[in-house]
């Protein structure tokens, strides 16, 4: 089967800082793929390359047989890619419903010319709003539909972002730490929700998450990054027992002895700049 998203040998450098080097993996249609790794491993950088906020220094990203690097940030949603953000990218000046309607921005046709005259706008607004409301129902957010999204609990805003993502009718949904700020029970429910959404639609999911329980339970395929380099890939069980993954997360076993503290510090300080050497 042809992969939906194929990331091939992608490297990103900012000046002399290597954020990613030689990262390759792919997401199959209908798959829920997890991207994990310690802080600063380059997960969000991968996302930013896919959503065209960063330009990779080298490598290629193919989506559905198309060169994604030729696209611009606002055009990828047309191809069916939508993402959420680690620190939320909602709009406090809009209501919750309008936030979700914005996700379907590309589905609207009324532009600068017709909008002032309100030609055909009512019909379009009604259908966009109804559709957004349905999504809010699906995510149990209708209570706050007409509230500004400022000042809502973090977990709620995460769900609003998910609803906005779904409003774009994506084929590939990219979620950046969707479970942050949720309680344990809520994380389980979110996992069920994402799987349910995937089952009901023609949807693939690529997610970054620190909550290992959720990743292991939800994802069918897991990619592990460390220091901007892929260190493991496979089924959750394989990855969990991979010694390199254990080392990346817990540090080498001997790091906890006398000199451990100082070397751990140097490892942290070098995180951004060292690329792959540390694990090579």
């Amino acid at each position: 089967m042809q992969p939906l998203l194929d990331i091939d040998d992608v490297a990103v450098r900012f000046g002399g800082v290597t954020a990613l080097s030689g990262v390759s993996f792919s997401v199959m249609p209908g798959q829920i793929c997890g991207l994990i790794g310690p802080n600063g491993a380059g997960k969000t950088t991968v996302f930013n390359c896919i959503s065209r906020i960063y330009d990779p220094t080298s490598g290629s990203i193919t989506y559905d047989g198309r060169d994604l690097l030729k696209e611009r940030p606002h055009t990828i949603v047309r191809l069916g890619i939508m993402r959420s953000f680690q620190n939320l990218a909602l709009w406090p000046g809009l209501t919750v419903l309008e936030n979700v309607m914005m996700g379907a921005y590309r589905r609207g046709k009324v532009g600068f010319l017709r909008s002032p005259l309100w030609l055909g706008a009512r019909r379009e607004e009604n259908s966009l709003a109804t559709r957004a409301y349905q999504l809010l129902e699906e995510l149990d957010l209708t209570d706050i539909a007409f509230r500004q999204c400022e000042g809502l609990p973090y977990g709620t805003m995460k769900r609003i972002e998910l609803a906005r993502g779904l409003a774009a009718d994506p084929r590939l949904l990219i979620l950046d730490e969707p479970a942050t700020g949720l309680t344990h029970g809520e994380v389980t429910e979110l996992g069920d929700l994402i799987r349910g959404l995937r089952d009901r639609r023609d949807l693939s999911v690529l997610l970054v998450e620190h909550h290992m329980g959720m990743v292991m339970a939800l994802c069918e395929h897991v990619v592990v990054l460390d220091f901007g380099r892929k260190i493991a890939e496979g089924k959750p069980d394989q990855v969990r027992n991979d010694p390199r993954v254990v080392e990346a997360y817990l540090g080498a076993p001997d790091q906890f002895d006398a000199h451990g503290a100082s070397s751990a510090t140097s490892a942290t300080s070098a995180t951004g700049g060292t690329g792959g050497e540390a694990t090579a």
Binding site: S51, I53, P73, H74, T75, I76, V77, R78, M82, R83, F85, A89, L90, W91, P92, G93, L94, E98, M101, M102, G103, Y105, R106, R164, A168
Partner: peptide, 17 residues
């Protein structure tokens, strides 16, 4: 909505199309 979106969070607006 697009105008307000690009004011409040332009990256989010771009990603939404």
């Amino acid at each position: 909505r697009a105008i307000i979106a690009l004011r409040d969070n332009s990256t989010g607006a771009a990603v939404s199309g």
